[in-house]
Amino acid sequence: MRMRSRALLVLLCSLLAGAFNAEPSPDPTYKDCHPGDKAALLAVKAALGNAYHFASWTPDNPCCDCGAIPASLGTIPNLSGINLSRNRLTGAIPSMFLSKSADQVYLWLSHNNLTGPVPAGFAAVNFAHLDLSRNDLTGDASGLFGRGKELQYIDLSRNAFDFDLSGVVLPEQLYFVDVSHNAIHGSIPAQVANLSNLQFFNVSYNRLCGPIPTGGNTARFDLYNFQHNKCLCGAQNNATYFYVDQVD
């Protein structure tokens, strides 16, 4: 029963994200929200048994303020997945977001206008899939990685994250890593060559230096995955030795 509830919540949140992305209503009583938004919000509330987290979602309110992530949404016990990608969300990710999440969490927040750092509490969330790409997030995101975590997919690309990649320990189950188009510095951990499940790895457009690890699955990655860094160098596919484009 719990698993069914979790699956239902993921589906409803996905539908809600689609409603938020619709065209605004010309009716001023909806405060520039699509008429379907109100119905979607009330449906989510009803499906969750009219949980107290959504006390403000009532038929008397013409529409909610969809500009920011509601802090209450992320404090639902046993929340296992939420998809709010491709909306017009702004502001910071709430500090307590997903603080009462399930054992394994799937989160999509890509293609928004979110700002500020990732919450410190995210380091304790057991993400399996995390997509924060294409926002304006800043600061140190290294706490999202770490030994023993079940993280399999992480996309931090096209933000303004700035941290040292050298000491980051990559979870062993990772198969997709994209941290391109940030301000990440340091060097690429040698551990990358030992990740047996790794299918995609992109660190381009950062400020990395040092040798590119070789061996393992790294032979499948070409110049595209490493270009436009400060001073990366290496031998790709056991053939070509190159320096990646220099940037200031």
Rank of each mutant, 00 (worst) to 15 (best):
R2V: 02
R2P: 02
M3F: 09
R4I: 01
R4T: 05
A7V: 14
L12V: 06
C13M: 13
L16H: 12
G18Q: 15
G18L: 15
E23S: 12
P24Q: 11
P24Y: 11
P24F: 09
S25Y: 07
D27M: 04
P28A: 01
Y30S: 02
H34L: 03
A39K: 13
L42C: 11
A43I: 01
A46W: 03
A46K: 14
A55C: 03
S56W: 13
T58W: 10
P59G: 05
P59C: 11
D65M: 04
D65L: 06
G67F: 05
S72Y: 11
L73P: 02
T75M: 15
P77A: 10
S80P: 01
N83K: 06
N83L: 01
L84Y: 03
R86H: 15
G91E: 07
A92V: 11
A102M: 10
Q104N: 10
S110C: 07
N112G: 00
L114V: 04
G116N: 12
G116D: 10
V118T: 15
V118K: 01
P119R: 14
G121H: 09
F122P: 03
A124W: 00
V125Q: 03
V125E: 00
N126H: 10
N126Y: 00
N126T: 04
F127M: 05
A128H: 08
H129A: 08
D131L: 07
L132A: 06
L132M: 11
L132H: 09
N135F: 03
N135L: 08
D136T: 06
G139K: 09
D140S: 11
S142C: 13
S142T: 14
G143F: 10
G143P: 14
L144A: 03
F145C: 07
R147W: 02
R147C: 05
G148I: 04
K149P: 03
E150Q: 07
D155L: 05
D155H: 05
L156P: 09
N159C: 06
A160H: 15
A160M: 11
D164M: 06
S166L: 01
G167L: 02
V168P: 07
L170A: 06
L174C: 08
F176C: 02
V179F: 09
V179G: 04
A183I: 02
A183V: 07
G186T: 05
G186C: 10
S187W: 01
I188W: 02
P189L: 09
A190Q: 14
A190F: 02
S196A: 15
N197C: 11
L198P: 11
N202Y: 06
Y205R: 13
R207K: 14
P211R: 12
I212S: 08
P213G: 02
N217A: 11
T218G: 03
T218V: 13
A219V: 12
R220H: 06
F221L: 02
L223G: 00
F226Y: 14
N229P: 03
K230H: 10
C233N: 13
A235G: 08
Y241V: 12
V244C: 14
D245F: 03
V247A: 09
D248C: 09
D248K: 13
